[in-house]
Each structure stands twice: as structure tokens, then as C-alpha cells.
Design a binder for these strands. Structure first.
Length: 710
RNA sequence: GGGCGAUUAGCUCAGUUGGUAGAGCAGCGCAUUUACACUGCGAAGGUCAGAGGUUCGAAUCCUCUAUUGCCCACCA
């Protein structure tokens, strides 16, 4: 008679076994789809959303890894040629500012003191070191990523892809350089895209000034120096005596100016006095009006947020300081009608917190409404983005986000892609006098200078599904694994990233980047608050995983976490799944103990056969849940069946039969099969403990659990 | 201003196509030479936010209201 393995008599200790098991998986080579034994089904691909190199593992990453690893392990066990490709993101502005701050603190120098080349060298060094930390943390979550294909958004291969894309889009007339209004961040000294602007509420004053016969309202007196257009609604009865294009002289801040009347429907007669003056250089709405009527533009505020010479006595002053002084002057001239309290939203830069100042600047743009020839059809990038989702070639889960997506795409304006920071893919354009060269490298002759700017970080991340697979080269990986199956990420980057990936992939490859975009909810603390360092309610997944085991943490993140809904996570929940791990361990020991004398596989009797059938039905149900991305249900059902059906009912009743020798062989066989099949089924969710148990229950002919047939 | 969610037991949430309301945690009672006190069994706890409608039948579908959260736009 066999004996119970010694290891099983001790309680399960996750922290002690996880590292050994992960090493065993990694050494097996099975993370790489090219090494998988018994591939019987189609390729299955997930490209990991690349974390910022500067980051450390947080609960958001932990959720993403848990969900994706579960899907990947499930498909791998089913016999798919399964690829999960890892990488990291250079996160241009974020990374550069981390390193700049470090240099400032340690050496008291700015980026201009040490120069472009040296700064980039230091950032690279920092990025490579930092990347190792987060990657090792990803391993500790049990992530079965193919490390042999590791990519970085700014390595040489990705740089080739970026340059190739830029040139291709330029040649198609989709990328252009132009003077347009952009979001300028005076603090970060760079442009940012519309999506990087976050609005915060500000309490301020709203001023009513006399402007000739009119009273105009403004919250920004400091921009008003050059205002020579006064706009009102064409149907506004109060101003019917004035006609479009009429000119009149008005007394203004620095003396009289000639004002022109513009009648336009965009003016809301209900707001303020129904009359406004416009500043096209520093307002998006005003800029659009100026474009429409071909008006003059004049810059009032410089890159540093200071007033220009047009402000005369106020020139050189900062906006904040100038505002009150300007109002004083107007007051002295008797031009202030009244001042009210006012609450409105102001745009700030997501990364630096600087107050965004719209400016007209010469920048590079991607034209989303420009028609071009695309695989034999005339289309626009916007249409491609709509079609991909409308045709269901890409499905967004949960589907309510599809509406949000359409709304966003329909209102999309040209995307400003140039950034005035140093860390990033440098724009592949060279200038010599009036000549311009777009290509992979500088022309051979002397005198060509490359564009100083870099590309928006989302330009390179937008190409992530195929740049990681070797594009623009015609690689086997690209043919095999693209379009990818699932893109799994938080719903907070639907626009930033998902939309851009659809844009680039449909444009360059004429295929969607992924068949399914699965959006998980964001993690909140047990009271529903956002986790943040300043509130001090952050749960560190690394602590939880050491304390309760990675399997427990993964289950806690999975159960009850339906697509698109935020997940509240408290430590108790993780603890509950540690108990589950313990339950699995004990049940295994017990089943092994009671089946030590089992020689051969016995036939199940009628009663046991029907119990087994219920399990098979449950199993099919769970498979369907996973196939349809209801991982929160699948995980809960596995938990419930194992604990409350298998342990509480089946084991309890069969142990009596085994003791009494009443249908003993059938009972033993039932326990053996159910344990085995459940360990297999639970593996994608709790990979460590199941792989460990597998060592003691597997047959001699079995391979390791991660490649055992589901 | 526009859009999208959420509201179910004390707490956290499930509830896949409409068919007698579920779990975990907490609390209560009972059991114990026990695979597991990191256990088991049991009881208790809910007019499924409110009102109206569709239906043989509604937590589920429709309309309105309330509370709450998020996203988008941004108005000088």
C-alpha cells in the first residue's frame, strides 16, 4: 500500500512554493507558443498592455494580470497555440519628468544644463533598471508571459515601426505640419493632446466690461488686449441695429481700437450679455470662429505664461499678477460695469498639473477627416475607426462602452502628435532651409537638421499589437498571431489607447488589432473610494500576495469583478480565498489518504455516476462562462462547487461509504476523478496551488498541469 | 449641458435568455478523540430605491421620479 507524501501533511504555504513553481514553468519553455506540445487548435493571442517603466505593481496591474493569465492558461490547456506577449511603455512625459526631478534633487541641474544627449542616456539607464523591477513583480503574480518576445515601446524594432508608420501616413497625406491651436502646458513646456487635459473646478471672478456700446463678459481680462472682434447672435433683438461686418471705434485697455461686428449662431444669447469679444490665439472656440470668418490672430501670452509687448505696460507680467492690475486700470477708465463670483472649469495638464494655455503653434498632426485611398476604397481614419466596431470585427465588452466609443470618435479632432520633450520617438523629419525630408534617416549631405520634437507616447503604443509582432517586416509571428484575440485593460484608457490602436491597425494592416476589447473595472477600497497614496487607502498587491498567497489574491480580484464595473477590495476578501486554498489542500490530503489502497480505476455505480454527471454539467457551464468572458461567475462557481458540493456533500457522504465498505471502490474512484478534474479546472484561476497539488495526484503519463488538457 | 452606470440581507456584492430571491463576511444557536477551529450543521435577516405599465408571471423588459457614481463637452 502507498503512503501519503510527507509534504502534504504540512499546511499549505503559498509564499514558500510559488517561486519554485514559477521557475519550473519558466524553465519548461511552455510560455513560448513555439514550444507547446500537442497544439491542436488555432493560435490565441493577448498582448499585455505595457506598464510604465517607472511604475511598481499596483492593484490595477494585478487585476489585469489575473484576468489575462486566467484566459491564457485556459486557452493553453485547451490546446491553442497560445501567446501572451509582455512589454513595457516608455511613457515619455512621465518618465522624463521623474528623471528630471531626480537630477534636480541630486545635482541641482535642469535638463538644459546637462543637454539632450546626456539626459536621454540617463533616462534610458533609469528605464532599463526600473523595468526589471516591474517585470519581476509581474512574474510573482504567476503571469505566464512569453519573456522571449519582450518588447519596449522605444526599442530599435519599435522605432523602425514608428518611423515607417510616420512616413506612410505622410505619403498618404494623413500627417501634416500646420499652425493650429493646441493645448500648451506652460509648466511642462510641451503641447499635449485633448485627452491629456483634465478639467478642474475653479472659483474666480466674472467681469463685465464696457466695450463701446456693448457690455462684454469675461473671466480672462488678461487676454483681452487685442480683442477687435465683437460677436453676437444674429437673431438677438437687443443688437439688431448692428450689422455683420460693421466697424466702430471703441475705447479699450490701452486706448481706442477699431472693432468689427461679427454675427454668429455659436453665441448663446442667454449667457452673460449675449455679446463677447474673441481671442483666437488663446481659445479653441474663438480660433474656430476666426477660421470661419478669416479673422486676424494675435498672440497675447507667451510660452511661459507671460504677457507679450502688445500688453504695453503689462508686458512681461505673469497672467496671475496681471489680471488684477488690468482690472484696476479698466476701473480707473470707467469701463468696468460689474464683477460677479464665478465657478468654472479650467484645463490642466494631466502629468504636470500646469494650467493649459491654448496657443497657435506649428505642430505635426494626424488628420482624421482627410480622405485617402485605402485598399482600393476612399475613406478617412475616422470612418475606419467607426467601421471596425460597427461591423463587430472588434467587440467591446461590456457593450455599453461602444456608444461611448462612437461618441468620442465622431467628435474627434485632428490629433496633435508632436511633443516638445526629449524622451520619445524623435520625429523622422529633417530640414535644410525650406526643404524637408521625411524618412528613416537623415539625407547624406551636410546641413540637414532633424526636427527637435518627439512623438506623443500614444503614437508608439497605438501600434503595439503589431509592432510587437515584427511589423513592418512580414514576419511569421505577424501572420500567426494578428489580429490578436483580446485586449484587456481598464476602461479609463478606452480613448487614449484602444481607439488609437484601432486607428493604426485598420489603417496599416487593414485588419482590427483585436477581436475583443475587454474592459475591467477600476479597483476601489472597501468604501468605494479611489485608492490613492494621499488618502492612505492603497492595498499593495505584493503585501497581500505574501500574506495570503498569490492564488488567494487572484481569486479575490476575480470573483465579483464583472466587466466594466468597479471592484471594491478589502483585505477580508483576500483572506477568505486563502481559506479556500487551505480547503483545497486539506481536501486533497483527505482524498489521497482514503484512496491509498485503491489499485485500479473502478466502475462508478449508478449513484456516483449521476453525481459525476452533475459535475460535468457544471464544468460545461463554467467553460461557457469563460468563453463568454464571465470570469467572475466561473471563478465563483468553481469555488462554490468545490467547497459546498464536493467537500460538504460528496466527501462527507462517501467517507462513510468508504469506512463501511459500502460501494467503496466506486466512492474512491468518484473522489479521485472529481479531485483531479477540479484541480485542472481551477488551475487557470489559482495556478500555484493546483500545480503543486498536481505533483501528488498526477498519473505517471501526465505532464505538468499548465499544459494538461482542460 | 449631453451620455452611461449603480441602487438586492447589518456590510461587500452575485443573480447569463422574465419562471418560488443567492453567496461571502459580520452577528446568533448547536456540534466536536475531526481531512480542515483556516471546520461542520442550523436558524435568523430582503414589499430587490419609489411610483406606474407590459405579462399567466418582473430584481430582470418599458416609462417617470429620487439618491449616487463615472465619462464627455465646456460658454466667452
Amino acid at each position: 500500500m502507498k503512503e501519503l507524501p510527507k509534504e502534504l501533511t504540512a499546511p499549505y504555504n503559498g509564499a514558500a512554493t510559488e517561486k519554485t513553481i514559477y521557475d519550473m514553468w519558466e524553465e519548461s519553455g511552455y510560455f513560448n507558443p513555439d514550444n507547446l506540445p500537442h497544439v491542436t487548435k488555432d493560435p490565441y493571442t493577448i498582448i499585455l498592455p505595457p506598464p510604465n517603466v517607472t511604475g511598481t505593481l499596483h492593484t490595477g496591474h494585478a487585476i489585469m494580470l489575473a484576468i489575462q493569465d486566467t484566459l491564457i492558461r485556459y486557452k493553453r490547456m485547451q490546446g491553442h497555440k497560445t501567446l501572451w506577449l509582455p512589454g513595457t511603455d516608455h511613457a515619455a512625459i512621465a518618465t522624463q519628468s521623474v528623471v528630471e526631478k531626480k537630477i534636480q534633487k541630486e545635482e541641482g541641474k535642469t535638463r538644459h544644463d546637462i543637454g539632450r544627449e546626456e539626459l536621454l542616456r540617463r533616462i534610458n539607464e533609469f528605464a532599463l533598471d526600473s523595468q526589471l523591477i516591474i517585470l519581476s513583480q509581474f512574474r510573482s503574480m504567476g503571469a505566464s508571459l512569453d519573456w522571449s518576445r519582450l518588447a519596449f515601446t522605444i526599442d530599435d524594432k519599435r522605432n523602425l515601426a514608428v518611423k515607417t508608420m510616420f512616413k506612410k501616413m505622410y505619403d498618404d497625406g494623413l500627417i501634416y505640419r500646420g499652425s493650429r491651436i493646441v493645448n500648451w502646458d506652460p509648466k511642462g513646456q510641451t503641447t499635449i493632446s485633448d485627452d491629456e487635459v483634465v478639467y478642474v473646478e475653479e472659483k474666480t471672478k466674472f467681469y463685465y466690461f464696457k466695450y463701446g456700446p456693448f457690455v462684454i463678459g469675461t473671466a480672462r481680462p488678461e487676454t483681452k488686449f487685442g480683442d477687435k472682434y465683437v460677436v453676437m447672435h444674429p437673431d438677438d433683438e437687443r443688437y439688431k441695429e448692428y450689422t455683420h461686418g460693421q466697424k466702430l471705434t471703441v475705447e479699450w485697455i490701452n486706448g481706442p481700437i477699431e472693432a468689427t461686428i461679427i454675427k454668429d449662431e455659436s453665441v448663446d444669447p442667454e449667457f452673460g450679455t449675449g455679446v463677447m469679444t474673441i481671442t483666437p490665439w488663446h481659445s479653441v472656440v474663438d480660433f474656430e470662429l476666426a477660421e470661419k470668418y478669416k479673422l486676424d490672430y494675435e498672440q497675447i501670452i507667451d510660452k511661459y505664461g507671460k504677457l507679450l509687448p502688445i500688453a504695453e505696460e503689462f508686458a512681461g507680467m505673469k497672467i496671475k499678477d496681471a489680471r488684477d492690475k488690468i482690472v484696476e486700470k479698466l476701473q480707473a477708465k470707467g469701463l468696468v460695469e460689474r464683477i460677479e463670483d464665478y465657478t468654472h472649469n479650467i484645463g490642466t495638464a494631466e502629468r504636470t498639473g500646469g494650467i493649459v494655455e491654448p496657443q497657435i503653434m506649428k505642430q505635426w498632426f494626424i488628420g482624421v477627416n482627410k480622405e485617402f485611398e485605402h485598399f482600393g476604397k476612399t475613406t478617412t481614419l475616422k470612418k475606419l475607426m467607426i467601421d471596425a466596431v460597427e461591423s463587430k470585427n472588434t467587440t467591446i465588452i461590456p457593450d455599453r462602452f461602444e456608444k461611448v466609443y462612437f461618441h468620442w470618435v465622431n467628435n474627434l479632432r485632428d490629433w496633435c502628435i508632436s511633443r516638445q520633450i526629449w524622451y520619445g520617438h524623435r520625429i523622422p523629419v529633417w530640414y535644410k532651409g525650406d526643404e524637408m525630408h521625411i524618412g528613416m534617416e537623415s539625407p547624406a549631405e551636410d546641413g540637414w537638421a532633424q526636427d527637435e520634437d518627439t512623438l506623443d507616447t500614444w503614437f508608439s503604443s497605438g501600434m503595439w499589437t503589431f509592432s510587437t509582432l515584427g511589423w513592418p517586416n512580414d514576419t511569421i509571428d505577424l501572420k500567426t498571431f494578428h489580429p490578436t484575440d483580446v485586449l484587456e485593460t481598464g476602461h479609463d484608457i478606452l480613448f487614449f489607447w484602444i481607439a488609437r490602436m484601432i486607428l493604426f491597425s485598420t489603417y496599416a494592416l487593414n485588419e482590427v488589432p483585436f477581436n475583443v476589447a475587454y474592459l475591467h473595472g477600476l479597483v476601489r477600497d472597501k468604501d468605494g473610494k479611489k485608492m490613492s497614496k494621499s488618502i492612505g487607502n492603497v492595498l499593495d498587491p505584493r503585501d497581500l500576495s505574501v500574506k495570503y498567497g498569490t492564488d488567494a489574491l487572484r481569486m479575490a480580484l476575480m470573483v465579483g469583478n464583472g466587466a466594466g464595473n468597479d471592484l471594491k477590495l478589502g483585505e477580508d476578501k483576500v483572506k477568505a480565498y486563502k481559506l479556500f486554498a487551505n480547503k483545497i489542500w486539506n481536501a486533497t490530503r483527505f482524498v489521497l489518504e482514503r484512496t491509498l489502497d485503491q489499485e485500479v480505476a473502478a466502475q462508478l455505480n449508478e449513484e456516483d455516476e449521476s453525481v459525476y454527471k452533475t459535475w460535468r454539467e457544471k464544468h460545461a457551464d463554467i467553460s461557457k462562462d469563460i468563453d463568454e468572458y464571465r470570469l467572475h461567475l466561473a471563478s465563483e462557481k468553481l469555488y462554490d462547487y468545490f467547497w459546498h458540493v464536493f467537500c460538504d456533500e460528496i466527501i462527507e457522504t462517501r467517507k462513510v461509504r468508504i469506512a463501511n465498505n459500502d460501494g467503496k471502490e466506486s466512492a474512491q474512484q468518484l473522489l479521485t476523478i472529481l479531485l483531479r478534474e477540479q484541480i485542472i479546472a481551477i488551475h487557470p484561476f489559482m495556478p500555484f496551488i493546483t500545480e503543486e497539488i498536481w505533483k501528488y495526484i498526477k498519473k505517471d503519463s501526465d505532464t505538468m498541469l499548465m499544459v494538461t488538457k482542460w
